[in-house]
Amino acid sequence: MISLAQMAMATGFILILIGFYGALTQRNLLRMIVAFSIADAGVNIVIVAIGHMRGRTAPIIDAAVPVADAVARVIDPVPQALVLTAIVIGVGVTALMLAYALKLHERKRTLDIARFTELKW
């Protein structure tokens, strides 16, 4: 029996692989950026899946989760806090990549990575 967490984790790993494949094989800068975003989403899904526990609920104390019972009822809150940070930093990284891509396009009027040969050896 495959649990929800394992399914989510497998999805995350597959997304990471798709992202890596795209980043390695695509020539267009924008497509590479999209690939990095996909891999980023995959990493986040894997981390959240690690924190999941069977039969427990979100780490928010309310009528369903009384304070005294919280330890036995909630899932691990630490991976969620980590992913919250990772998502925000991911957006920042994506914005930076887009800004650089825009600048590169302005210089050479192309987004093909093969045309940028200055650092090639």
Partner: peptide
């Protein structure tokens, strides 16, 4: 109430 918020 939100433990994640308390951590962050």
């Amino acid at each position: 109430a939100n433990i994640v918020t308390a951590i962050v």
